[in-house]
């Protein structure tokens, strides 16, 4: 469209570029049919279905959910929040890994350097730590919510069992991360915790030794806890998470109202 002086208006130019961009083959290839970001998306029941169905989201959510499930007061989003916190912890954890060496000599100074020399280092470390505590809390509250709704009853028994495993994995993840700053708090908290493992009948000594990699908490323990924390536990957790989410969908979605 032309202005009074014959020049194309900036607004029109932006609009034109926008249309060209969103109509381009690249964008078309990225977005699946029914994506709300696609050019010409219109809000219709059919497209609302497509948004979920033609999307990776379909693994997590059905096209439609029971109306009561949308009420915040029913689920409080606790399961979803636990998952989101896990993602947040993974992101902040990757950031922290860039600045951290899992050795008894370097670990503590690395944390100090992270807090003082690295941009946003303190913030990310705080996010990681409080996020972890919050995740333990939200997983526990999620379990309580499920219990009070009786949502573990058939056919959801097995998913409850997986959920309990996920709670333990969350605790182990948090606990293994506790040692990594290698300060007095970390060392002695883990000493107290691993001492409990030593009381297991028959195999207690072996379990404790396997965890510590030595007779006491040492540099070997630090390396073990580091590998468990950044690799082993998250890996197992993700596997169980996948089964957990899949079973939620297959066992009939979120449970019925009280």
């Amino acid at each position: 469209m032309a202005d009074g002086d014959g020049k194309t208006g900036l607004k029109d130019k932006i609009k034109e570029t926008n249309e060209k961009l969103w109509g381009s083959q690249v964008v078309e290839a990225i977005l699946r049919p029914g994506s709300p970001f696609k050019k010409g998306y219109s809000d219709s029941p059919r497209n609302r279905s497509y948004v979920v169905m033609n999307n990776v989201l379909y693994h997590l959510h059905p096209v439609k959910v029971k109306r009561h499930g949308v009420k915040l007061s029913y689920t409080l989003c606790l399961g979803g929040l636990s998952f989101f916190l896990f993602i947040l912890l993974t992101i902040t954890g990757i950031f922290l890994m860039f600045y951290y060496t899992p050795s008894a000599e370097a670990a503590y100074t690395d944390i100090q350097a992270l807090s003082t020399n690295v941009a946003f280092g303190t913030l990310v470390r705080n996010l990681h730590r409080w996020g972890a505590h919050l995740m333990v809390l939200s997983v526990f509250l999620h379990m309580s919510r499920v219990f009070y709704h009786g949502a573990y009853k058939p056919p959801r028994e097995f998913n409850w069992v997986i959920g309990v495993l996920l709670l333990f994995l969350t605790l182990f993840l948090s606990f293994s991360g506790y040692l990594l700053p290698w300060d007095q708090l970390a060392l002695w908290a883990v000493t107290v915790g691993t001492n409990m493992a030593g009381f297991i009948p028959v195999v207690g000594g072996q379990v404790k030794f396997a965890l510590l990699g030595s007779l006491e908490v040492s540099g070997a323990t630090l390396l073990r806890f580091y590998v468990l924390h950044v690799l082993a536990f998250p890996f197992i957790l993700v596997l169980f998470l996948a089964v957990h989410f899949w079973r939620v969908r297959k066992d009939g979605g979120i449970s019925g109202p009280l």
């Binding site: 503590y108 807090s115 705080n126 700053p181 300060d183 007095q184 002695w188 908290a189 107290v192 006491e216």
Partner: peptide
């Protein structure tokens, strides 16, 4: 709230009290 960072780990000095997470 800042994450705590106490003194470096020292096997020979047990803090009093020492508490688990």
């Amino acid at each position: 709230i800042f994450s705590p960072l106490l003194d470096p780990a020292n096997v020979n000095s047990t803090p009093n009290p020492s508490k688990a997470p």
